[in-house]
Nucleic acid binder design. Structure first.
Lengths: 216, 216
DNA sequence: GTCTATAGTCGGATAGAC
DNA sequence: GTCTATCCGACTATAGAC
């Protein structure tokens, strides 16, 4: 089942080398802050190769997002399938299904959340729309439905807001907002990723299950 | 007490016009995506004026962050002073002191949270460090202390993590992550800002006050 | 498919007149 | 303080040889 070629990646094609180099650079320096020259130099390919394999710098970013967003959200769907099959709609387990596929990414792609962060807040509307409609919206809707079964006391819009609060927490710790480094210092390195994930789920599950109204 | 010049802003100086135009452009298109020519054109000032009043494009962004981060965090400190004076350490009230100064910003500066978002995740380390050390770190530390008095069952590091989850939720809804528009649709326009703030505080207060351990 | 060479544009910054 | 004019480097994209 496990192909050894996935990890060691021998005999990588020019196209893949471009994708890998560009992905890291875009995550770190942003689209406008990354030149094709940086990418081709880092990937050890010729400058013209980008416009040959992709058609433009923008189409390259497009391809990068599709390559990552597809597998992550398919995995989320699988985990949701299992929850629905079992009939056990528990908030913690549903949230786990959302965050686990990202936490399970290898450390060698630890920059992917930063890339997604840019998509959420920084990239152009068109870029966001393409990726969101294709990969994220169906997943988000299904999570909303599952969570309402787990916490039926909330209206649909109330739940949608709380899901957004959860996504904010999740995105923040995944993208490693620089604040984390300054506030938590060495603590962060010491905390195994698994513990961070459990802390996040604990926090968000309590928030999502909070009673409905503020005033009696 | 209230100066009418604050709102109508008559006879704005060249320097201020540059600050205003650049702030909006940087928030929308990012530092690399904004040229000095866009800024001076939008501000109706000469191209050379930027390098005269500030010294470089980077120093201009510096000035922009200082102009906003100062007042917001001073207001937070005031609200914290009031809490400490009253001796009523209630999680909801402490969280309110953190978010209120931002929610109270006029709609005409609704782009400021987006600008802060870029600082958190996108700008250079140097830019972040300058602003964080000067404006945010002292505030964050005080909030951590106050929250631990309100929820003493948590260790310092546990609380720091939960504060980070809260900040993620807050930043996400303030920056209006594009997801909000797509998921919540018209609902967002209809929800008064005050209601959003209360929902956020309700969610985060429950999360922060969640019991300590996952397993017994 | 891969390269070199270059077209064509736009960027930040500054010199120097007023 | 404000302007015009300009330097010079860097950028995306492509044409055309191999």
């Amino acid at each position: 089942m496990i192909e050894t070629t996935v990890l060691s990646a021998p005999a990588q094609t020019t196209k893949d080398r471009i994708l890998d180099a560009a992905e890291l650079l875009f995550a770190d320096r942003g689209f406008d802050g990354t030149s094709l020259r940086m990418i081709t130099s880092e990937a050890n390919v010729n400058l013209a190769a980008v416009n040959y394999h992709f058609q433009s710098k923008e189409a390259l970013l497009h391809a990068i997002y599709d390559r990552r967003a597809g597998p992550i959200n398919r995995r989320r769907m699988e985990l949701l399938d299992a929850i629905e099959a079992s009939g056990e709609f528990v908030v913690e387990r549903i949230l786990d299904a959302f965050v686990r596929p990202v936490f399970e990414l290898g450390v060698e792609v630890g920059h992917v959340p930063r890339l997604m962060m840019r998509l959420l807040y920084v990239e152009t509307e068109g870029m966001f729309q393409h990726v969101f409609e294709r990969h994220f919206r169906p997943v988000l809707l299904r999570f909303g439905v599952a969570l309402r079964r787990a916490a039926p006391h909330l209206s649909e819009q109330e739940m949608m807001w709380r899901v957004q609060f959860f996504i904010g927490s999740f995105a923040h710790v995944m993208a490693g907002g620089r604040v984390l480094k300054f506030v938590l210092k060495d603590e962060r390195e010491a905390s195994p990723r698994d513990l961070i994930m459990r802390r996040l789920i604990r926090f968000a599950a309590a928030g999502i299950q909070a009673p409905k109204e503020i005033e009696a």
